[in-house]
């Protein structure tokens, strides 16, 4: 899901930075308006950035390829509007430290992973519609769905971007086949992340329900 340097044309990379800049600005403004003390959310965002950063090092073999954790859904669910800046920082560190993704594609990757995270939060907030008796089951189910949706949207966006920008010197058909295989490899990843997110939100609901109260 991390698009490395040199894969997309310069115009797409520039567009990615513009879009990521816009969403970051929007996120920061929303955070400022929604919280009387915006910095109170920073510890949570900081710790989840560390989790996000480490997650990409955990690989799962899905023959014929392998996928790694992204945790965009978990970021969105727990952090709300803080998720986008947190993902941006996490991606920057991944690109600089591990050459995972790239600096030129930082904007593109932030959009591919960060925007689905914001949508995941929107999905997760539907849990307020569940009554008190079914609160736990509803929270877990929506945590699963939100994480699955975030992975699916991210993988679909990345695949679409890669397939539509294959350079002329490559065999587009071969690349398309490989991308399709990778796209389907993200279905099990979505299930894994969904289960993980469901467990985390259930745990938080028990021990610190206040952490899940991040609002749009």
């Amino acid at each position: 899901m991390h698009v490395p340097d040199g894969i997309v044309p310069v115009s797409v990379a520039a567009g990615g930075f513009a879009a990521a800049g816009g969403v970051t600005w929007l996120s920061l403004r929303k955070i400022e308006r929604a919280h009387t003390v915006p910095r109170n959310g920073v510890p949570k965002a900081s710790l989840l950035t560390a989790v996000f950063f480490m997650a990409s090092l955990i690989h799962f073999p899905v023959p014929p390829t392998s996928v790694h954790l992204v945790l965009s859904g978990l970021m969105g669910v727990v952090l709300g509007w803080y998720a986008f800046p947190a993902i941006l920082v996490g991606l920057f560190l991944q690109a600089v430290m591990f050459q995972h993704g790239g600096l030129t594609t930082l904007g593109v990757n932030a959009c591919i992973i960060g925007i689905p995270a914001l949508l995941a939060h929107r999905v997760f907030t539907l849990r307020t519609r569940f009554g008190a008796r079914r609160r736990a089951a509803g929270t877990a189910a929506l945590g699963f769905v939100a994480a699955f949706v975030a992975v699916a949207l991210g993988a679909a966006a990345a695949s679409l971007l890669i397939v539509t920008t294959v350079p002329a010197h490559l065999d587009a058909v071969v690349e398309r086949t490989a991308v399709t295989a990778l796209l389907f490899a993200h279905v099990p990843l979505g299930v894994i992340e969904g289960m993980f997110t469901a467990i985390v939100v259930l745990f938080l609901l028990r021990v610190q329900p206040g952490l899940l109260e991040e609002r749009f």
Binding site: V42, S46, A50, F53, M54, M97
Partner: peptide
């Protein structure tokens, strides 16, 4: 490097 980033994040949180 992962440990450094981890420590940086925990430090920021604290």
């Amino acid at each position: 490097m992962a440990a450094c980033v981890l420590w940086g994040s925990i430090g920021t949180a604290l």
